[in-house]
Design a protein around this nucleic acid. Sequence first.
DNA 1: CAGTGGTCTAGACCACCGG
DNA 2: CGGTGGTCTAGACCACTGT
Lengths: 246, 246
Amino acid sequence: MSRTVDPYAALPRYYQLLNILKEKIDNGEWEPHQSIPSERQLEDIYGVSRTTIRQAMGILVRQGYVYQEHGRGTFVSPRKIQKGLQELTSFSEDMLSRGLKPGQKILEIGSVLPPGKVCAHLELPTGCGSVLRIERIRLGDEQPIGLQVSYLSLGENQTITRDELEERGSLYAILQEKFHISLSEAEETLEVTVATSREAELLQMQPGAPLLLSERTLFTKNRRPIEYVKILYRGDRYRYTVRLTR
Amino acid sequence: MSRTVDPYAALPRYYQLLNILKEKIDNGEWEPHQSIPSERQLEDIYGVSRTTIRQAMGILVRQGYVYQEHGRGTFVSPRKIQKGLQELTSFSEDMLSRGLKPGQKILEIGSVLPPGKVCAHLELPTGCGSVLRIERIRLGDEQPIGLQVSYLSLGENQTITRDELEERGSLYAILQEKFHISLSEAEETLEVTVATSREAELLQMQPGAPLLLSERTLFTKNRRPIEYVKILYRGDRYRYTVRLTR
DNA sequence: CAGTGGTCTAGACCACCGG
DNA sequence: CGGTGGTCTAGACCACTGT
């Protein structure tokens, strides 16, 4: 229960305040389109300066929890728009948010010399050393959803074994925990294609059936490309959602 | 040429500073991964307080121009990642950014009673009044790219005529200029489908060929849904790009 | 008019990084 | 250790909204 802002807590005050306000909105304590206390009132209520309040408020606005109107006040956004969807998620997180149990079948894992296209995306010189290639079938509630091929540009002595991946499930979790690599953003393109006979067999569908092809390049905090990943999604079992801002 | 921050200008100082810094990065005056002056140095250089500098810097970070490392400094992001792609764009803007000449063929425009699915997306009660429906073929360099159907939830006495749309081209421009409606964000889903015979004929392709189906709901600044739009893109002529952040 | 959010200042202390 | 970004304060003035 987070009711007040503790000046001595480890968490920054704007962050504590952020959580308190989010909670009130999520609980429905403040209704959509209803105004919330003004910034000067919040100063008194939580005993923090207006700057700190505005820091929290800016995040709430960007995450779509509230909207502000100059001279009128701050208002709660309607529910539908509250949850951020433009977020970078792993396949596992994606499945969980859809209420499906994530799963995988590892087809192949090992070092390869990357094709030219992969070099380009990972910003490696052509003819560079090897990268880690992982080919997996991705499952949702045990059903095949997509065929995924990843190319990882790791350091000299860094690698990931089949066992680690099988045990942990999520590649992003391994990157974070084993190598302390945190991801910041990705560029993704989507297009349609049709299944080859091999793809159709692996995904248990008819050859020539439509697929959604996603190509994603992942960047670390300091904007170095770390992974290039291609996923072929079954057209009948996958829908892509994104939230755009202006 | 914006070299200094003018305290008396109409533009806020953090915004002037933002433009100056963006310009230096775009011009290549500061190279990728090179550190830029520290926040305290920028105070002296531009004669504004650190708070103002941090306000501009926060935007630069969010837009992907620079990245910051605690205790080390602020660094220029590599070029590829600088331009924001998560932005909400109209079809016209989208085509222009791809180097294609946008065009359209208006098939139908007029008031209709919205189907239930459309009511839901526009948050209108079922059996509500009529909405404006626009069906268009969208062109890129005179070639058909997509088939678009829009439903607009306008006010009582607001409408858009065929002539206005033909002359202005972009719906968003009309919304802004005629009704002073500014858009803030959208939710979009993408999936694959195959062309019906009517769709195939309009898009000049084979029936059964794969299409990319986009469904988008647009929200105004105060988060009211204003438009629901469905676009069927030719699978062979369209690729969707998005930038994701964590 | 009073109240709201938008901008801005000149300080302060902290945690982190490198030499 | 000095320099960096991260957090925070207590003010101030402005532009905009409603009554």
